[in-house]
Nucleic acid binder design. Structure first.
Lengths: 168, 168
DNA sequence: ACTATATAATACGATATCGAATTAGATGAG
DNA sequence: CTCATCTAATTCGATATCGTATTATATAGT
């Protein structure tokens, strides 16, 4: 059936700090990401993918923009991937890059008026679909999920930085 | 900072069933998936990616195996992506494909002894890393997250099937 | 049994992802 | 000031992802 649990934990030893629960959480997060990405892309013009729209959405609430490195860090993707996503958004004129006055190597990426408009249209088209989909959720699910997910994300992120430092 | 909230909701209208919270949850799920995938791949031999290991891990608790379509459905990825992942695992002799006695078009994919051994080694190498990383989590975070994530995943999945049917 | 339709898997092509190497500009030590 | 080092971004090459079209087999209607 479609409601199976991939990689589910068969049992849980008492001492070991449930690695298996952790794995199950990781797998579920990845499936949720997969499903929501597909859902979003079904309302996106062909040629635009979730990674690109995510950046656009992020920039829409930060009119001052940010550097590519800041954006890569916000989404925790490699900076070469961000270069690629930004190039695609720039080709579509949805964002624009200005020289960074503080650092000649860098640049500042900002959303354009066309980008903001586009983002608004997609959000609007998406609203009823998402609302309908999520209407089947137990009330409060998202509000309970969000802080927990954020907490996990922050801890994972901190550990990643820590590991990176250890390799100095 | 590295603890920003990409695509965060600026405010929340009372009537509209917080599309913005939903977006934030989706984004966080995607970042968690990204971070855990990177973490896993840091302990995987080069040439193996998270998608492949996920399938291997899934099969390790299902000795009878499954069809490619069942596996694609378990992870909610397109079946052509699963074909690719399975081909990679087969090349490495970590899984094997047998003809499906019930259906000549299909086949049954099973983990091999080498695959089970390999999976065990990776899990063992990963255990201390994950344990250390997650030691910074508030206790109970994962146990509270798992049922909520599953619930969300199941609802998203059901909606997806529903949409697919509408297009018949 | 025969044809139409449906389904499992794959082949193919376009694009996305990402690690390693590169380029250009910044920063710090002397 | 100059050189060494560091850092932001990009280029390049390898691989992954996934939509469309294709192939092979199954199933249903007559």
């Amino acid at each position: 059936m479609t409601t199976e649990n991939p990689g589910a934990a068969p049992a849980k030893a008492s001492g070991d700090v449930d690695l298996l629960t952790a794995f199950a959480v990781f797998t579920e997060a990845s499936i949720v990401a997969q499903l929501t990405s597909t859902l979003l892309e079904s309302r996106l013009p062909k040629g635009m993918v979730t990674a690109q729209f995510g950046v656009l959405n992020h920039l829409s609430s930060r009119p001052a923009g940010g550097t590519p490195l800041q954006l890569a860090s916000a989404f925790q993707v490699p900076k070469t991937s961000m270069t690629h996503s930004l190039a695609a958004l720039e080709r579509k004129r949805l964002v624009e890059a200005l020289p960074n006055p503080d650092d000649g190597r860098s640049k500042i990426v900002r959303i354009t008026p066309a980008g903001a408009r586009f983002r608004g249209e997609v959000i609007e088209a998406l609203a009823p679909v998402v609302a309908h989909t999520l209407s089947a959720l137990d009330p409060g699910t998202l509000d309970r999920l969000l802080p927990l997910l954020r907490h996990l994300r922050i801890v994972l992120d901190a550990a990643r930085n820590c590991r990176a430092e250890r390799l100095e």
